[in-house]
C-alpha cells in the first residue's frame, strides 16, 4: 500500500479551501497551516502563464525528516504516511530544517506538526479533508498500488511532475500539468 495525492494544476483556482478545511478538521491553530497555496507567474503580458498549486507534506519515501529525528518521533506508518508522535517530539526543529518543502511548523504546544493525510479519516475509508472539500475536484487521493484508486487513475493518463526531485526524497504528491 502506498498512499499518494495528485494535484491538478489545470483546475486549481487557488481558493485556499483546502487550507481552511484542514484547519477546522485538525484544529490547526490560527496563524499556522499544514497546507498552503503557491502561484508562479511566467512570461510577459499578454503571453503569460500561471501555475497554482495546493502544497503540503510530500510524505516522502526517502524522508529526510525521519532520518534526522533524534527521538524517533517522526516516523513512517503503513501506506507510507509520515507522522509525528507528539509525545516523543521534543520540538528541536531538526526536521523543519531538513524538509526541502518547508512542510512542517512548530506547534505552540511544543511539538512539530504537519499534514497527516488525515489518517484518522483515511482509516475510516474517507478522503483527507482537503480532498473532500475541494470545489474544483483538483485533488485526488488514494493507494498507488491500486490501479483503480483516484490517484492512480489521475496520474495514469496525464503529464505530471513532483517538486524538488533533485533532493532525492521520492515525494508522493504529484502535480498534474
Amino acid at each position: 500500500m502506498r498512499y499518494a495525492m495528485a494535484v491538478d494544476t489545470k483546475k486549481c483556482v487557488g481558493c485556499s479551501d483546502c487550507v481552511v478545511a484542514c484547519q477546522t478538521e485538525n484544529n490547526v491553530p490560527l496563524g499556522y497551516a499544514r497546507d498552503w497555496i503557491t502561484e508562479t507567474v511566467a512570461g510577459t503580458y499578454p503571453n503569460v502563464e500561471i501555475e497554482i498549486r495546493s502544497e503540503r507534506c510530500n510524505h516522502c519515501e526517502n524522508a529526510p525528516c525521519v532520518r534526522c529525528c533524534p527521538t524517533g518521533a517522526s516516523h513512517i506508518v503503513e501506506g507510507g504516511i509520515v507522522l509525528v508522535d507528539h509525545d516523543k517530539c521534543i520540538g528541536c526543529g531538526a526536521c523543519i530544517e531538513a524538509c526541502p518543502y518547508d512542510a512542517r511548523y512548530p506547534h505552540p504546544d511544543g511539538y512539530v506538526d504537519k499534514c497527516t493525510f488525515c489518517i484518522h479519516r483515511v482509516e475510516k475509508g474517507e478522503d483527507p479533508a482537503c480532498v473532500a472539500v475541494c470545489p474544483t475536484h483538483c485533488l485526488h487521493f488514494g493507494d498507488l498500488d491500486d490501479p483503480n484508486s483516484d490517484v492512480s487513475k489521475a496520474i495514469a493518463d496525464r503529464k505530471w511532475k513532483v517538486l524538488a526531485p533533485e533532493a532525492g526524497t521520492k515525494p508522493q504528491i504529484y502535480y498534474l500539468i
Binding site: D17, V19, V20, T24, A132, V133, P135
Partner: peptide, 23 residues
C-alpha cells in the same frame, strides 16, 4: 462549533463548501 461541511444532497455545493463556507 468545530467545522462546517457541505450537504451532499444540495446542488448548490454537492457536499463541498467554498473557503468562506468552510471558514
Amino acid at each position: 462549533i468545530k467545522k462546517i461541511i457541505g450537504n451532499k444532497d444540495d446542488p448548490h455545493c454537492n457536499g463541498r463548501l467554498c473557503p468562506r463556507g468552510t471558514g
